[in-house]
Design a protein around this nucleic acid. Structure first.
Lengths: 143, 143
DNA sequence: TTTAGTGCAAAGGCTTTGCAGATGT
DNA sequence: ACATCTGCAAAGCCTTTGCACTAAA
């Protein structure tokens, strides 16, 4: 899925809710989409600030919330560390292997697991929308 | 796995690290283990306070951290909501179905997925220790 | 023109820390 | 004895909110 799609989802969401297209909003979205994912609110704020020094951190938070609401961004929290936001479109869905020693992130994907998760949800009278799988352990280097 | 096991893991961890057995520590552990899981730091603080009115919230936080370190408790964060702590031993491993509308938690378990996760980790030169699977969607009532 | 959005700064909410006294070992 | 723990209160850190102003539509 391209980041074009994410942009459309976001702008559709805005117009559906009667919200407005401000340059701040679009700049935050663009910066987020080109960040490659796993960014914190503060990192995003600073990245946007580099281009537009007069952006406020509250605005970044407000829009990050909006982006989570419409599904363009996903909140992920790894262990005790800070909340990070990940792109949902633009580099495909994936799960995470997280090294408990060095903190390394490995992104993985497995269709079988995806399908089993859907089955599991349906078996419980549940309509799955999205999911999060994190496997903690030791990476190649640390084991 | 019984909560006896969790207790042993905790006390072993303490003695290994030269830490002490205080009544606060044991009371926090007991309360946590008998809570059934999915408790917030604040809820745990209040639960312990009912028995021992002179407990401090800092102590609960310090010990919750300790419990996470040794693997007796697991931090889980659901959506935008508060961080909750879950027992790792005492009521078996399970994954979560989380309703994005009403916030309902459903605990599920599927051996096939568990095994696939292990394979996935191993295929990436990764030694899995534990994992977290959350499926977000709509529950029976909300769909 | 109307109403949402923004920046700023203040307020919140939860977690962590510093400290002096208490307490395991 | 002596190093760890604890409770308290203060400090931190990030997020949210109130307000007056700005700017989409």
């Amino acid at each position: 899925m391209s980041s074009e799609k994410a942009k459309n989802i976001f702008t559709d969401y805005l117009s559906k809710k009667g919200l407005r297209n401000t340059w701040q909003r679009l700049s935050i979205l663009d910066t987020f989409l080109s960040s490659g994912g796993h960014i914190t609110a503060d990192e995003l704020y600073n990245a946007v600030k580099r281009k537009h020094s007069d952006i406020g951190s509250a605005t970044v938070h407000r829009n990050l919330k909006l982006m989570s609401e419409c599904g363009v961004a996903d909140e992920i929290k790894i262990g005790n560390k800070k909340t990070r936001y990940e792109q949902k479109y633009g580099h495909g869905h994936h799960d995470h292997l997280i090294c408990t020693k060095c903190g390394k992130f490995i992104e993985v994907h497995n269709d079988k697991i995806e399908r089993l998760q859907e089955k599991l949800a349906e078996a419980n009278d549940f309509i799955p929308q999205r999911h999060k799988l994190e496997i903690y352990g030791l990476c190649k280097k640390c084991k």
